[in-house]
Every structure is written in C-alpha cells, then in structure tokens.
Design a protein around this nucleic acid. Sequence first.
DNA 1: GGCGTCTCAACGTGATCTTC
DNA 2: GAAGATCACGTTGAGACGCC
Length: 381
Amino acid sequence: MSKSKGEKPSKPYPEFPLFAHASGRWCKKINGKFHYFGPWRDHEAALARYLEQVDYLKAGRKPPNPEAKGLRLWGLCNVFCETQDYKLSVGEIVRSTHQDYVETCERIVKFFGRDTIVEHLQAADFQQLREEMAKTLGLRTIGNEINRIRIVLKYAYDEGLIAHPVRFGNQFKRPPKSALRRQKQAKGPQMFTVEQARELIRRATPPMRAMLLLAANCGFGNNDCASLTFQYLDLKGGWHTLPRPKTGIERRCPLWPETVAAIEAYLPRRPNPQHEEDQDLVFITKYGLRYVRDSENAVSKEFAKIRGFAGTKGTFYWMRHTFETIGGESRDQVAVDHIMGHAKETMATEYREWIGPERLESVVSFVREWLYPVPRIVVLP
DNA sequence: GGCGTCTCAACGTGATCTTC
DNA sequence: GAAGATCACGTTGAGACGCC
C-alpha cells in the first residue's frame, strides 16, 4: 500500500539546507547517514527541527527528545552559576575561579547541547568531550577542566537536582602524574645556562637587573619582585624577609653583594608611586604603578624585551627554576625550600623550628659561585 | 601515605588604547 | 613614534583538605 505524497516539492529558497526525499520527508545527509526532519507539507517545522538537532548529529550524538522529563544542562548550569555568583559576592572565591566555572559551563552546554538531560549523559559522551579538548588543550589544562566539569555535575547530585550521580567512565579523569611528568620532560629544561643568566643580567635595565639578581640569588618570581617592600628589605645587613605572596609562607634569604649593589643603583631612579598604598614598594614602573597588577605583568613584558636583546628564550620565572636547580646541587634541599618559600607539610617541617643562617648562606654562596666563579689560586708545592 | 577534590595564584600572549 | 597600560583570554603550578 502506497501513500500519496503528491508532487515532489522544490526547495522553498536556494539556501534551504534540506532536500525533498522520495519518502515524502525533508532530509539531510550528515556524517554519511540520512536524517529526516518532517513532511514536505511543513518545510518551516522541518527546518526548525533540523536546526535544533544538527549540532548533535554532526558531533555524532543522539539529539535530546523534547518530550523527555528531567534536569536540562542549561538549567543545571544556571543554578550552578548563581551559586558561584553568590560565592564571589561574599568573597568565598575569587574572580578568576568564578570565571573558570562560567567558562566550564559554557563549554559543556556548547558541546552536549543546552537541552540535554543531565541524567542521560554517559561515559561515552564524556570520552568524546575529552577527545575534543585534547585537540586544543595541554594535559594540565585538560585535567583542571575535567575537574571543574565533575564539580558542576557532582553539584547536581549533591543538591538533589538529579536522583543518581553522573557516570563519567574510567577515561574522564585527570591525566596521571606520570603523563604530566613525561610532557614536562618533553619540553626540556626550563632554566638558563650560566652564560644566558650572565648575559641577561648584563643587558638588563637597572630595575630589571635588580629583579633578575633577586631571582638568581633568592629564587624570586615576578610577583615576589613586584610585592617586595622596604619593610622586608635590609640592604645594610644584606637580607630579605619577604613572605611568599602566593602562600604567605615565611622565608628569608641572605643577599649577594651584587644584588645589594643593583638595588642601591636603582633606588635613586625609582619613580614616585602614583598610589598611596604603593609607597613602600621597592620596584615601581616608570608611570608610577606597581609591576604586577590584576591584569598586567610588567615584569614579564620588560623581561621579554631583555630576552630579545640577549638572544635567548625563556621567561623571567626560569631564573627561579635556575636557582632551585643550582641551589639543589648544594645538597641542602631544606634550605633551598626555605629560600624558595615552598611549603612541604611533612612531620619534619612540623617539628623544625628554625633553619640556621649559615645553611641559607651556604646555598646562596653555592649559586653565586656558579654564576660568578671565583678564580682559584693554585699553590704549587 | 597516596590520591582525589576544590581552589587560588602565577605565567604568557596578543590586540588595542593611552601616555610620554 | 615608541613605550607602557589595559583588556581579554588561555595555560600552568601548587596548596588545603578530606577520604581511603
């Protein structure tokens, strides 16, 4: 028995994406397979359905059933983001973390589709998402993103928005530490040779020379330099006692004569700070601002110029890596960690009350001899 | 002690605007 | 015109804490 479908219609307009299939329906071939979107008699409804489903079909996923009941992905993301808005407003999280969550929500809505029922997501869906992320993101970033995606979907279960936890599958986990280590090794060492370090210091502007010497001498990073205040700097005694801004970990370090001299050479040229709260900062940009601010890192940018002159690659932070590596050769890792401001919460650090200054001096002298070797006088017998 | 979860901060870059 | 500031976005490293 054949149904009469009438005369096969032509496209209502040239850009219309579907074609009239002999079965009486509007059709489109996607990924090598024919999909049907409605009868000839209602081309607008067929087009609307096509537009709803095309992204899912192109991605090789099943489009959601509009009649299906359950929490939709966009609904979950809205509620989750409202919670994060609140956390941001009361200071529980910072702006960058809030932004990370918003972008994670945007990513899963874009990939899975806004109308996807959360409880319909399966391990295979997450595997596809991971493969998609792997096309553009590094291992570390994929791990962090996977983390946040799991947080969003865990939130749905914790809040009672879905009856069962989402199954992510065995593949949708942070990359193992071994893989992260392999990727790091593949990139090669991120430190300067002694010739590169000397050339960078030699070619630097006065403030950058002082900052580079602080990095080589004390393992300072960009923000350490930008946050250093006179309160924590004893040029006469030759010590700094700046706690690490990132962690608040206490640390102190003896300064080389070269470092003291570079800071003293810079200070007469130090511009006046624009803002009252920056009065005590040692390093100020030529426009009177602090070097590292919310969306600006003038240390990185100024270093990039010097790096160009010196004909080397790397970042300012590599000098910190260099200190850690060369300092480690002194065989007193505890003293190196203290100077670096690393918090290693072991029982030993719990019981250790202090580290003698001679141990810190020994480490920085070791690095200094690497950078500025003293000619040895050999006394012949 | 090891690992997973959650969070935060630092680093890096490019386009565009502003100031000197 | 050059240098620095601003904005936006992406990437990476690491600490705190809880659970097994």
